[in-house]
Simulated assay, not measured.
Amino acid sequence: MLTVWYNTRCPVCDAGIVRQKRRLIEAVKAGRIEFRDINFEPAALAGHGASLEDIRRRLHATDAAGELLIGADVAIAVWEVTPGEGWLATLFGNPAVLPLTRFAYDRFADLLYAWNRRKGRW
Rank of each mutant, 00 (worst) to 15 (best):
N116C: 12
A72T: 03
A43L: 13
L68F: 00
L100D: 15
D106Y: 12
K21C: 02
G49Y: 06
V12A: 12
R19Q: 15
P95E: 07
I38M: 00
D63E: 00
K119E: 13
L2F: 03
A96W: 09
K119M: 12
D37L: 01
L2V: 01
A43Y: 13
R36H: 05
G16Y: 10
I55L: 09
F40Y: 14
N94E: 06
Q20G: 12
R36Y: 03
A44V: 14
L45V: 05
E67M: 02
R36A: 08
V81A: 02
L52T: 04
A64E: 12
G84A: 01
M1K: 01
A50T: 02
L112I: 07
A27G: 08
F40L: 13
P99H: 14
W115D: 14
V78F: 11
D110I: 08
R57Q: 12
P99S: 15
A65N: 02
I33T: 11
R56F: 10
D14K: 11
I70P: 07
C10W: 05
D14I: 09
G49T: 09
G31I: 04
I38T: 02
Y105K: 04
L98M: 13
L24C: 14
H48A: 03
V12C: 07
I33C: 03
T3Q: 09
N7G: 06
R22C: 15
A109D: 05
T3H: 06
D110K: 07
D73H: 00
I25K: 15
G31Q: 04
E53L: 02
G49S: 02
I25W: 15
N39R: 07
Y6W: 14
V74K: 05
L112S: 06
W122F: 15
R117Q: 11
L68W: 02
L68K: 00
G16F: 12
L52A: 04
E53N: 01
R58M: 10
R56T: 10
E41N: 07
N39G: 08
A46V: 03
Y6K: 12
G47C: 06
L24Y: 09
A77Y: 00
N39H: 07
L111R: 11
A96P: 10
D110Y: 04
F103T: 08
R107P: 07
A44I: 12
V78I: 13
L52M: 05
W115Q: 15
T3E: 06
I70Y: 08
F40A: 14
K119T: 08
E26C: 15
Q20T: 14
E80L: 08
L45R: 01
W5R: 01
E26K: 15
V18T: 03
N39S: 12
F35E: 10
R58E: 13
W122L: 15
P83Q: 10
D106P: 14
L111H: 11
Y6H: 13
V12D: 09
N94F: 03
N116E: 13
T8S: 13
L59S: 12
A27C: 06
I76P: 03
T101I: 08
E67P: 04
L112Y: 01
A65L: 09
G71P: 00
D37P: 05
C13F: 10
I17C: 11
T62N: 08
R9A: 06
A96Q: 08
A114V: 01
